[in-house]
Write a protein that binds this DNA or RNA. Structure first.
Lengths: 207, 207
DNA sequence: CGAGTGACGACATTGGCATTTGGTCACGAT
DNA sequence: ATCGTGACCAAATGCCAATGTCGTCACTCG
């Protein structure tokens, strides 16, 4: 299970990319955001936590929001990893498909219940189209496309519909569960609801 | 085109059900909510508008929220009517299906752009599970079930999947566009995005 | 008795002021 | 040069009394 790195451009960063202090900042931010929430932690708090001055933090990040995006990217990476873990276990394309979305959704839900504060950052990122949220969707689309192409090769899935349209449509209909902003409002139907949606999509993929 | 009445129980009402003053209140409320928003209009404003005292309004409604629900029910009725209008024009079941959702969605979007204040009430209703929002979903599910049964009779749609599961799944995957709370975040993809979702669902209904 | 209301309590909202916070910059230390 | 900082500013936020709003009830009037 290899972690996906969706933040190579890493917008909002500056200064030395590989630097121990950067990691200290991120670690402190994750801890503080998780405990007190994004809004209630000040960059002075983070500075105090790592033993440097507030100004020094701005040698590594453009803004507090950039730090938030870094934490958000971590969360969304974990969610994607949760999906990825399912894929490798899947025997058929349909099986991989089912496990992929179940992995994404259950990892998201887990984040919601066990780290509400961080989840709220992810939801906010989705609402404001933060780069990590966009990257998350792009990454999910790529993975989805690979699964569908596999299914088309093995003859499990139909081949008439243009692949891009298929992927786009699937992401659209699964958004109620994939998008943290929307999943929040559909938690009551877990885990049956997404399963029903997945079944419907698989029916639509039938040859 | 017959208007659907989804508020026969009409929770939150009291006093004489059929009464001119009740209608005056509702009319004044629609006007004020539309112009100034739910939060910025006081029940004293409504009282002044109809020329009675504030106390008298409470002979007809349990609360300000109950008035909001009445207005919300009107809006959602209009949306359902927008879907219904499409159905009667549809020639086949698939055509009716497509037109039904296009009608629902375009009417909702219209409400958003031309009466944002009222739309916000509908979104809030969806978020808080107000009775009119629940009734809206129930009504949509009933209508959907009728369309699908028609399609199954004519042989357009597959018959293996249990009808209730089919309906439920379709409502789930279409929620990104049917639910005012979620449609708000998907307006940028109109009208192509819902069309793609509808096409996917129709593929899933193929025999 | 039924239509309609003024006055009232509990709670929510506002407006303006003091404080905090995000972010920059010139500067010191090594 | 590189690493690191205190002092500073505009804008955002928190605070709290004064005001506004919801909802009820005893009451009047015809």
């Amino acid at each position: 299970m290899s972690m996906i790195d969706l933040s190579p451009p890493a917008a909002g960063q500056r200064g030395p990319v590989e630097h121990g202090v950067r990691d200290q900042i991120v670690d402190a931010a994750r801890a503080h955001f998780s405990r007190f929430g994004y809004g209630k932690t000040t960059v002075a708090d983070l500075a105090k936590a790592i033993g440097f001055s507030k100004a020094y933090i701005y040698k590594f990040f453009d803004s507090k929001q950039a730090i938030g995006q870094a934490i958000c990217a971590q969360c969304l990476d974990k969610v994607l990893a949760g999906g990825e873990a399912g894929v490798v276990e899947g025997k058929s394309a349909a099986d991989k498909f089912r496990r992929y979305f179940n992995g994404l959704i259950s990892t998201s839900a887990e984040l919601f219940f066990e780290d509400k504060m961080l989840y709220d950052i992810a939801a906010h990122a989705a609402e404001e189209h933060w780069p990590p949220a966009v990257a998350y969707m792009t990454s999910a689309e790529d993975r989805l496309k690979a699964i569908i192409l596999l299914g088309r090769e093995t003859g499990e899935f139909e081949r008439k519909t243009p692949i891009d349209e298929t992927c786009e449509a699937i992401l659209l209909v699964m958004q109620s569960f994939m998008n943290p902003l929307m999943l929040k409002h559909n938690l009551d139907g877990l885990p049956e609801a997404p399963t029903k949606a997945i079944n419907l999509v698989l029916r639509s993929l039938a040859p």
